[in-house]
Amino acid sequence: MEVLERLFNVALVVATLRTTAPILLVALGGSFTTKAGIFNIGLEGQMLVGAFFAVIGTIFTGSPWIGVLCGVAAALVLAFVFALLVVTFKANEVVVGLALNILAGGMTVSLLKAIFGTRGSIFGHGLVGLPVLRLPNARDLGWFGQMISGYTPLVYVAFILVPVLILFYNRSRLGLYIRVVGEKPEAAEALGISIARIRYVSSLLCGLLAGLAGAHLSLGYTTMFTENMSSGRGFMAVAILIFSNGDPLKILLGCLLFGFSDALSLRLQTFGISSYLVLAVPYLVALIALFALSYRARPRIIQETLASMGRALSVKPNAATDAEKAVTRG
């Protein structure tokens, strides 16, 4: 009982919200491209360059906010390249996304070596993290005050964006255009909507939030940069986008699940459990979630398969009869 109290408490909830924020930001960014009909697997790379250039901008200017702008700018450049190749040149979106992920990983390692003469990680050098916001009178609210106060600004931005994007997709003209382009591109063309322009805008909005996610990772969640520090969070976001179909509320629930598993894995390390097993917890949760999704969709797939078999069988007798008639006539 005492072990459970040490494991499941307010501190775990706070850690869950902290670990959820970067995944939530990048997944909400991916909702733009998902809604626009683009499967964007390059979220990992956009997040990684955002984290790296946020650190570079902060070190050279001394301001974490300028660092955030640098991280967002770098992610936007990668997002523009993705849109250029996929939308304009009609390249395969999965191949382009994987290539940009590899490019981001190699580029950050090379620049880390070229600028600082080291590999692995960079900290110090005047690096300043994002400020922590303390809400007034939060201490008077007890455990609830602990849950809502003491985070960096981008954590609040991540959760506030959920209702904002719900309204955006359902009430704004651009949001409706994005949905039409993704769901009914023929209708979009009939209405005179430029599919290429909407997909460019969606890709850039995705890069904006992916850059914020990376900046939060290196300046808010930690105050350093390490090689491949996105650690698969971009791929987790892709997994969440697959079963949520870009719906912000479902994205929030999926990200909270992954954030909880990540926070739980960090706390399990204090109980002497092998670090290899602990680090596998978030990915195990991802596999279970995807398996549950595919299992739930299995009846529909079986029904579609049986229906297609039925259509095929219903055609065969007619085809056989026609063949017999042809032979008889011959």
Rank of each mutant, 00 (worst) to 15 (best):
L249E: 02
M236G: 02
P163L: 02
G129L: 13
S314G: 15
L266P: 00
P248I: 03
V164R: 09
L98P: 07
K35V: 09
Q146Y: 07
L48G: 01
I160F: 15
R311T: 04
V55L: 13
Y276T: 15
G182N: 04
N92W: 02
L85S: 12
L219K: 01
N170I: 11
L208V: 13
N92L: 01
L209V: 07
A158W: 08
R298Y: 13
L111H: 02
P248V: 04
A289L: 13
R311M: 08
I302W: 13
I66F: 13
L133R: 00
T61R: 00
L130A: 12
T33N: 00
G175R: 10
G42Y: 05
S274I: 06
Q269T: 15
P136E: 10
V180C: 15
M47Y: 06
F82E: 01
A11T: 12
Y283Q: 07
F52A: 11
L130R: 05
L43W: 12
T20H: 13
I178G: 01
S63G: 08
L241G: 05
H216D: 08
T226A: 15
F271E: 06
P22S: 07
L219C: 05
G120I: 12
I193Q: 06
I59Q: 04
V128G: 01
V10R: 03
I166C: 10
P131V: 12
V181R: 03
F89R: 15
G220W: 04
A307K: 14
G67V: 11
A196W: 02
R179T: 14
I122Y: 11
K250S: 13
G57F: 04
A213G: 12
G29A: 07
L25S: 02
G254N: 12
V49S: 03
L25R: 00
I41E: 05
G37M: 00
N170R: 15
K316L: 12
L7R: 03
A51I: 11
G175M: 08
A323S: 09
Q303M: 14
